[in-house]
């Protein structure tokens, strides 16, 4: 007999959230991490109790965007782990990087699955909204969160590139077969709103944001408020949609 108590603990820990939003995309480098960080911060500053979880287990980078030094900042241990609060905001943040330092984690699939279950079962959130940054594709990170979270509502991120859109099409099928209903679509690195709308129609997803190439983005890395200010003007629909659900 082998009963994994983490699965029961996770159920309980995730039950506190009104809404769980994994930020997903089949392709890498489309802006998931940037969007997850900026969106979390926008919502936190609007008074929502937000948790941001970096689930990119082998290559976590949300802490870099938020300017959190994982060597000096550590979550507090209290019947589990209390996530780190970002500066003066109410944003709660958790990442495996607190434990792996800034080193690469040479993990195989089963290790990743284990690490995710460990993180989810020990983290004590007090937020009502959980935003999850995920690695590209539909490997353990995304599958785990889809099967462990109650009613996850992913936001799909794509660029206008044909390759990206085609791979999104395929992954929508996977999500639909798992009974998961996406919250909507964010098109990043797009020069035209019309193009974004076309893409969202092709994919039959609600367009939550259409973000252009932002020249100053690199300079905002590690400066969460600057990052938020850069992206927020393009994400009003995404923010409103989430607010409507969590404030209901």
């Amino acid at each position: 007999m082998f009963i994994d108590p983490r699965l029961y603990a996770i159920k309980r820990r995730l039950a506190v959230f009104r809404l769980i939003v994994p930020i997903v995309s089949p392709k890498g480098g489309v802006g998931k991490s940037v969007i997850a960080a900026a969106l979390s911060l926008s919502l936190a500053l609007k008074g929502v109790r937000v948790g941001l979880l970096d689930l990119d287990i082998t290559n976590p980078c949300s802490h870099l965007l938020l300017g959190i030094d994982v060597e000096t900042t550590k979550p507090i241990e209290d019947r589990g782990i209390r996530p780190v609060k970002l500066g003066s905001t109410e944003l709660e943040f958790m990442s495996i990087a607190f434990y792996s330092g800034n080193k690469t984690l040479p993990l195989r699939g089963t290790d990743i699955d284990n690490a995710i279950k460990e993180v989810l079962s020990i983290t004590q959130w007090s937020a009502s909204l959980l935003i999850i940054d995920t690695p590209p594709g539909f490997s353990d990170e995304v599958l785990d969160i889809i099967s462990l979270a109650p009613n996850p509502r992913p936001i799909i991120v794509t660029t206008p590139s044909v390759l990206s859109i085609e791979t999104v099409k395929r992954s929508l099928e996977v999500l639909s077969n798992e009974g998961v209903k996406p919250l909507g679509l964010i098109v990043n690195l797009s020069h035209s709103v019309d193009l974004c709308l076309q893409i969202s129609q092709v994919l039959s997803l609600e367009l939550l944001a259409c973000i252009p190439w932002l020249t100053n983005l690199e300079k905002a890395v590690g400066k969460p408020l600057a990052l938020k200010d850069l992206l927020e003007p393009y994400m009003t629909k995404a923010i409103e949609t989430i607010l409507r659900i969590v404030e209901r």
């Binding site: 782990i81 690469t104 690490a115």
Partner: peptide
């Protein structure tokens, strides 16, 4: 200490 929280980081 790090391994105690998430045993898989032993690989680092």
């Amino acid at each position: 200490e790090a391994i105690h929280f998430i045993p898989d980081v032993a690989k680092v």
